[in-house]
C-alpha cells in the first residue's frame, strides 16, 4: 500500500498544526515522523488514520481518495501512545475485538477467530498472557498487545503514535529492535511518530523531520544525520554546537573575530554555524579556528564531555576522545573537522 499526502493543511484556531505537507510513502516502508512536540507529526498521523480531518489537502491510499472514508472503512491499524486497551476485556478479547465487530457477512467463525488471535499472540510473544487483563501487564507488554490488536484486522497500513513514549528507556530499546524485526516479518507499510531521534534513526528506513507544521527534510537515517538540509534539522538531530556567525567579504566572523573557515558560496549576512560535538578536534592553544578554556569535564564511557569557554565569551560543549585527558583550566585550540553554515 502506498500513501500519498498532498498539500495538507490543518489549523486548530489560529495555530497551524500542518502548514502544507506533501509526503509519499512507498509500499512496505517503515517511516518515522520525527519532530519536537507541536511540530504536527501526530496530527499528520491522525489524519492518515481518519481520526482527524484536514482543512484542505488530499490523502490517498494506492491512488484512491482516503478522505472519503472514515476511520472504520480505512482499514488502518493504529497504536496509541497510552495503549488504549479495553480494560474490561482480557488480552485475548482485546486482540479479538477487531475480528468480532466485523459485519456478519465477513465475520470469521469462532474457531477461526481463536486461531488468528493465538497466532497474533505468538507473533508478539505473549501467548501466555491471553487470560490476563490489561491492568495486570507491564507497559511494554501492553504496547505489544495493542500492536497485536491493531494487526488482527490485517490492516493495509500500520500507524504508531509515539508507541514507546510511555515506556522506560531499557524497555524502549528492546521494543525498538523488536518492532524493526516484526516489520521485517510482516512487511506492512508503517509510519511511526516519535520525538526521539535515536528511535527514528535506529528503527526507520526513512525519516521525515518536521517542525512547525512543515516537513524540513525527508531522507534515510544517514542522510538526515550526515547531510542535514536545514539549520533546524542540524540542530535537532545529533548533538550540535550552534554558533551565531556573520558572513562578510567572504569571511566567517564570530562576533568581531574572523574564523579560519571557508566561506565559499555563502550569502553575506547573519548565519548559523553548526558543528557536531565530536567533530571538534582538540589541539594546543593557537591551533585551529577557535580557542578557549576548559571549564568543566565529565566522562561518558569512551568520550569526555567538556564545557569550553571560547575567547569571545561563548560557551560550547564538545565530546573529545579520552586519549588526551582534559582538565579544568586547560587552554586549548579547537578545529572543526566538519561543519555546516546555514543562512539565517
Amino acid at each position: 500500500m502506498t500513501i500519498e499526502v498532498r498539500n495538507l493543511v490543518k489549523k486548530f484556531g489560529s495555530f497551524a498544526a500542518l502548514d502544507g505537507v506533501d509526503l509519499k510513502v512507498d509500499n512496505g516502508e517503515l517511516l518515522a515522523l520525527l519532530g519536537p512536540s507541536g511540530s504536527g507529526k501526530t496530527t499528520l498521523l491522525r489524519i492518515i488514520a481518519g481520526l482527524d480531518w484536514p482543512d484542505s489537502g488530499e490523502v490517498s491510499f494506492n491512488g484512491e481518495d482516503a478522505l472519503a472514508q472514515g476511520a472504520r472503512e480505512r482499514h488502518v491499524g493504529f497504536v496509541f501512545q497510552h495503549y488504549a486497551l479495553f480494560r474490561h476485556m482480557t488480552v485475548f478479547e482485546n486482540v479479538a475485538f477487531g475480528l468480532r465487530v466485523q459485519p456478519r457477512a465477513v465475520r470469521k467463525e469462532e474457531a477461526a477467530i481463536r486461531a488468528r488471535v493465538k497466532e497474533l499472540l505468538d507473533l508478539v510473544q505473549l501467548d501466555w498472557l491471553a487470560d490476563r487483563y490489561p491492568s495486570q501487564l507491564s507497559g511494554g507488554q501492553r504496547q505489544r498487545i495493542a500492536l497485536a490488536r491493531a494487526l488482527a484486522i490485517e490492516p493495509r497500513i500500520l500507524l504508531l503514535d509515539e508507541p514507546f513514549g510511555a515506556l522506560d528507556a531499557k524497555v524502549r530499546k528492546e521494543l525498538r529492535r523488536w518492532l524493526r524485526s516484526l516489520h521485517h516479518e510482516i512487511n506492512v507499510t508503517s509510519i511511526f511518530v516519535t520525538h526521539d531521534q535515536e528511535e527514528a534513526l535506529e528503527v526507520a528506513n526513512r525519516v521525515v523531520v518536521m517542525d512547525k507544521g512543515r516537513i524540513e527534510q525527508i531522507g534515510s537515517p544517514d542522510d538526515v544525520y550526515e547531510s542535514p538540509a536545514t539549520a533546524f534539522v542540524h540542530g535537532f538531530i545529533g548533538e550540535s554546537i550552534e554558533l551565531p556567525v556573520q558572513i562578510a567579504n567572504g569571511v566567517v566572523q564570530l562576533g568581531d573575530r574572523p574564523l579560519q573557515l571557508a566561506a565559499d558560496g555563502l550569502a553575506p549576512g547573519a548565519s548559523k554555524l553548526f558543528v557536531r560535538r565530536h567533530d571538534m578536534l582538540v589541539g594546543p592553544p593557537g591551533s585551529g579556528a577557535f580557542e578557549g578554556a576548559v571549564q568543566h569535564v565529565r566522562n561518558f564511557g569512551p568520550v569526555q564531555r567538556a564545557e569550553v569557554a571560547l575567547s569571545g565569551g561563548e560557551t560550547i560543549e564538545i565530546d573529545a576522545p579520552r586519549d588526551r585527558e582534559l582538565h579544568v583550566g586547560d587552554r586549548i585550540g579547537l578545529e572543526p573537522r566538519r561543519y555546516r553554515i546555514f543562512a539565517g
Binding site: A49, G50, L51, G70, A71, R72, R74, H75, V76, G77, F78, F80, H82, A84, L85, F86, R87, H88, M89, F97, G98, R100, V101, Q102, A146, R149, A150, A152, I153
Partner: peptide, 29 residues
Amino acid sequence: LDPEIEEAAGSLGASRWQTISRVILPSLG
C-alpha cells in the same frame, strides 16, 4: 475513560453502536 479507546474501537472497525455497547457501557457498568 480515555476517549482514545473509542478511537481505537473505531479504527478496529467497530460501528458507533458497537463501540457504545461493547466498550463504553461495559466500562461504565
